[in-house]
């Protein structure tokens, strides 16, 4: 028997075997690479209008700070609606994200709670019901029947869910109560819409309004806070469930450790926050309760 007389079937089997070997060897090699912590793959962090994400200079400084701390490239992906950031998380295009508490409850199955910012020392915020400063009469959202109302985002708690829940509790149908409602896709723009008189009223994140009152006081001066909602858990930093424990802990540590070095402190001061802390997802149970009232969840 010599090679030349090898039957065709045998030759095919040999070739197939060789290819399988090659494929296995390549797969093992790539698998081994994937197991290593990847120093050069960037950390993808989603940012939403849960805070003043359009302070671009501040964002760039914060990104560089995180890069230095993580010793890895950091990419910020900013989207103007919660929906888009939620989609990016579902599609695993993000490792971490700073989202609103309402989307967090929505995405509970896909994300883990990483850290909760501390605002005025505590992990809570509220919804402010605001009207133009030129209107001194309104004392309750219920007085705005058939008027124009500005919501922030359909996945915002303080800018959508909370005011609707208040109407719901008062026995009104939030879908028909106002003459016209619209979304501005950001809390800052809710303040603008009310300040310009485009809307007769609006619901806004207390953290955003308070921060604006510091960085842009002439804008908030054109609005008046009529009522403040109960406290809700502050919009959290979340990690996608696919993020490894090591990576999770490293980033958690970096965030929480921002209070311990001057650069981190300076950034926190400009973000108008006191720091980050771990917390229990139970913090957001009140949001889940409101969602249940509207038949969501």
């Amino acid at each position: 028997m010599n090679a030349n007389s090898l039957p065709a079937g045998n030759a095919r089997r040999f070739l197939a075997g060789f290819l399988v070997f090659c494929a296995l060897a390549f797969g093992a090699a790539t698998g081994a690479l994937a197991a290593e912590p990847q120093r050069n793959t960037p950390v993808r962090i989603g940012l939403t209008p849960a805070f003043l994400h359009d302070q671009h200079g501040l964002m760039e400084e914060w990104r560089r700070y995180l890069e230095a701390k993580l010793k890895r490239p950091v990419v910020f992906l900013q989207r103007d609606s919660y929906r888009e950031t939620m989609d990016l998380l579902r599609l695993e295009k993000l490792d971490f994200a700073w989202i609103c508490d309402y989307p967090f409850v929505h995405l509970k199955k896909q994300v883990k709670l990483l850290a909760v910012p501390l605002y005025q020392g505590r992990p809570y915020y509220r919804s402010y019901f605001i009207v133009p400063a030129s209107n001194p009469h309104t004392t309750s959202i219920l007085q705005l029947k058939n008027m124009v109302f500005a919501y922030a985002d359909p996945y915002s708690n303080t800018g959508y869910l909370a005011p609707r829940y208040e109407l719901f509790k008062a026995g009104e149908d939030p879908a028909r109560f106002f003459g016209k409602t619209f979304f501005t896709w950001s809390h800052r723009k809710v303040v603008e819409a009310v300040a310009f008189g485009l809307a007769n009223g609006g619901a806004v994140d207390s953290y955003v309004w308070d921060t604006l009152a510091v960085v842009q006081p002439d804008l908030t001066a054109k609005t008046r806070i009529v009522s403040r909602s109960p406290e809700y858990g502050f919009p959290p930093f979340v990690a996608h469930r696919s993020v490894g424990d090591d990576e999770f802990r490293v980033f958690q540590k970096v965030l929480i450790g921002m209070t311990t070095d001057p650069a981190g402190k300076a950034l926190l001061k400009r973000l108008n926050l006191d720091g980050f802390a771990t917390n229990d997802p139970k913090l957001y149970d009140s949001v889940a309760q409101m969602m249940r009232a509207f038949g969501e969840e």
């Binding site: 016209k180 619209f182 310009f196």
Partner: peptide, 12 residues
Amino acid sequence: HDDVWRAFELVQ
């Protein structure tokens, strides 16, 4: 799209 805010930003 009944995007009032976008329309407002445009006319502004």
